[in-house]
């Protein structure tokens, strides 16, 4: 049987890491936050202006597509798609190997 990670390991793993020759923990956090701010406030907004990217976003939004959905219930287009599939199946149930209702 596998040994799950013990709480003591997990907690010690989250302690501030101060090592000789490395920047102080606070400096490392500041560097990470600066990188996040640069990417999210400068790089990604610039990418969003690229015509191909903008067209993709507009198309997804117009069609009710949310690429970050983790389950069918999170897709805005799903109720509409579900109704359309029901219509197609009801029109020709035999085509889908189903009996007429």
């Amino acid at each position: 049987m596998q040994q799950p990670l013990s709480i003591s390991n997990a907690v010690s793993g989250s302690a501030p890491i101060s090592e000789p020759g490395r920047p102080a923990p606070g400096v490392r956090l500041a560097v990470c936050l600066a990188a996040i701010a640069t990417i999210w406030l400068v790089v990604l907004p610039a990418l969003a202006q690229v015509s191909a990217v903008r067209a993709m976003i507009d198309r997804h939004e117009a069609h009710g597509v949310d690429p970050s959905a983790k389950f069918y219930s999170e897709l805005p287009a799903m109720p509409m798609i579900s109704r359309r599939v029901d219509e197609i199946r009801r029109a020709e149930p035999a085509a889908f190997g189903l009996r007429k209702p």
Binding site: H60, H63, V65, P67, A69, K70, E74, A77
Partner: peptide, 10 residues
């Protein structure tokens, strides 16, 4: 991922 399926299907 379900969302990525929708994007690729679209």
């Amino acid at each position: 991922s379900t969302g990525a399926v929708a994007a690729a299907g679209d």
